[in-house]
Design a protein around this nucleic acid. Sequence first.
DNA 1: AGATTACATGCTGATATGGGAATATGTCAA
DNA 2: TTGACATATTCCCATATCAGCATGTAATCT
Lengths: 117, 117
Amino acid sequence: MARAATTTDAFNAVAEPRRRAILDVLAGGERPVNDLVRVLGLAQPQVSKHLRVLREVGAVDVRGEGRQRLYRLNGHALKPIHDWVKAYERSWSERFDRLDAVLEELKQKEEGDGGDE
Amino acid sequence: MARAATTTDAFNAVAEPRRRAILDVLAGGERPVNDLVRVLGLAQPQVSKHLRVLREVGAVDVRGEGRQRLYRLNGHALKPIHDWVKAYERSWSERFDRLDAVLEELKQKEEGDGGDE
DNA sequence: AGATTACATGCTGATATGGGAATATGTCAA
DNA sequence: TTGACATATTCCCATATCAGCATGTAATCT
């Protein structure tokens, strides 16, 4: 078996840095393909291909406007990533360090005055 | 060129669901390889290989203990993912919907009484 | 030493990738 | 219709993947 397809889910789609760059630009608003080409300095076919992947995982929507195709961000597709990684926030956030300290304190106290058991 | 190596960064490493599963188990505490093999129901060599990738991107640390190798989560390696995806939280969070509503209201008011310009 | 346990690495094979270049499709304009 | 512009698709190719299986290495036990 090979690596999972990039279109399998948002995790795979977003592993490619240029696709993240595309989403970052689209976060500023709807844009035609050529805008992305210019802003990102990529070849047009590659941009179209990356957009296809992003479309397949639902991270962007398209809308035809004359001869242009306007792409729009659909950040909702990224929620699973956020949900997953959020659980690890505790590893680096000072907020959680303080919370842990408080919890540890409570635990000490509880052990001190022995409830039941 | 081919797809970027899985060891390129956390984004690529974590695109593989079994590697996320490994991290999820390690979130519960340090564990030897065989624990992961049993809990996840994967073949031992694959687990070792996945752990190698996770080690190379700094998502886990190892420690030798007798004949076992104890793996420990290092969630800090996941911070870039969190930082990136956090910006998109606005797309689905109701909190931001309310914030946007408030901002919109302010904007209306500002346009109404025309400050300078 | 020999056997066993715990883990890592090497090899094979099918597969999807992503860039480049060329070409196809679609829309508007003269 | 012919042409220009905007975008999508196709083909080629070097490469990295992941599973499965076999084997290597290190520590412990008898």
